[in-house]
Simulated assay, not measured.
Amino acid sequence: MHTDPAAAAALPDGRVLSADGGLPPALGDDFAQAVAAVAALLQEDVMERTWRVWPVCAADGVGLHPVVREGDAVWWCAAGGGHEAAVVGGLGAGGRQA
Rank of each mutant, 00 (worst) to 15 (best):
P55N: 10
P55T: 10
V53W: 05
P5D: 04
A32L: 14
D45I: 00
V56K: 02
D45R: 07
E44H: 15
E70G: 13
A32G: 11
E44G: 15
P5Y: 03
L42E: 12
V38C: 09
V62Q: 13
A37K: 02
Q33C: 08
P25G: 15
R49T: 13
V68K: 11
G63Y: 05
D13K: 11
V53S: 13
V67Q: 12
A34E: 12
H2C: 05
A10N: 09
A32K: 15
A37F: 02
G89I: 07
W76V: 05
A86P: 13
G28D: 14
V53F: 04
D45M: 03
G21M: 09
A9G: 10
F31Y: 04
G21I: 06
A26N: 03
H2I: 15
A39W: 00
M47I: 09
A37V: 05
G89K: 05
W76E: 08
W76I: 08
D13Q: 06
R15C: 02
A58G: 15
R52F: 11
H65V: 11
H83M: 01
V88F: 07
W54K: 08
A26G: 03
D4S: 12
A32Y: 15
P5S: 10
D4P: 12
Q33F: 06
L41Q: 01
V46L: 08
W75I: 00
E48T: 14
P12W: 00
A26M: 05
A93G: 13
A39E: 06
